[in-house]
Design a protein around this nucleic acid. Structure first.
Lengths: 148, 148
DNA sequence: GACGGTATGTCAGACTCCTGACATGACGCA
DNA sequence: TGCGTCATGTCAGGAGTCTGACATACCGTC
């Protein structure tokens, strides 16, 4: 290895962090009027597309611990946006679903987030967007099993 | 807008979050033996390449608030990795620099982080890496001034 | 049946980071 | 000179997330 250092101006990792931070900040701003945090929106969105997920599965899908997701889900339950089975149909996993109110709020939230995402990728051609998506998924896959 | 919703399977925002989470987890694992958090490493790395930055400037460069950077810097000062001017040469900004020990630790940390980054982009050709970097910077730029 | 491994839910504690607020110093402008 | 604005450092408080631990439920193997 000739120069195994990191150069901020060319580092993909730094640019990745920068883009993720910008996206998170923009989403926070967009979701504030709906009284939703980014994590709460992520939970609702995931649940909207994958109904019946357990809290642990939601945690994996939103990249937080299941303990954090637990308190997050509890808050959404208290707000009447989610409903959860009282008993586990199998194992210990408690299937969770959106309520009607949760579905309505998610529709609004999804719209504003989609607007942010469209603005983010507005300068990329459709082919470039697909390529970027594939690259990002490949980055995550290449780092799998490196976080033990 | 025909379908202004978000599809997890094609969303660039979700893939971005996924890649950033994977990178962060891999960096945490790699830096743990050096007793450094990702935020602490980011501070050291930035300071190594931009000596004399103030805490507020470090905060902007690492995407945290200046209050968080303040406590982070204080911890690194206590560990003898950083040194900070006692008085401000101009304005209120206090220039901060790495100590010799900080420079040595940064060298090790930078090496392990560089290894993570190389593994992350190993499947991309050099041209693809440059294109991805440019795309990520463009994403962040497109979202600028959307976080008020 | 007994055992170990894995996955889930849950509780408790600590840590990190944030928001809000205030004081100080530099600069521009009237 | 005085005022307003901005950037920086700092203090206090709170919200969010994590680590660690424990109990429970499935699923293998022996």
């Amino acid at each position: 290895m000739t120069q195994p250092r990191v150069d901020l101006d060319t580092s993909i990792g730094y640019a990745l962090k920068q883009a993720a931070a910008a996206l998170r900040a923009a989403m926070e701003t967009a979701l504030r009027p709906l009284d939703l945090t980014v994590s709460q929106y992520s939970c609702l969105e995931l649940l909207g597309q994958r109904p019946g997920l357990s809290a642990a599965a939601l945690a994996r899908g939103t990249f937080v611990t299941r303990q954090s997701m637990q308190t997050l889900v509890q808050g959404l339950l208290d707000r009447g946006l989610l409903e959860r089975a009282a008993e586990a149909p199998e194992g210990r996993a408690l299937p969770t679903r959106l309520t009607d109110e949760g579905t309505r709020l998610l529709a609004d939230a999804s719209a504003v987030v989609a607007a942010v995402e469209r603005a983010m990728v507005a300068d990329l051609a459709p082919a470039g967007q697909r390529r970027l998506h594939a690259d990002l998924v490949a980055l995550a896959a290449a780092l799998a099993d490196r976080s033990s």
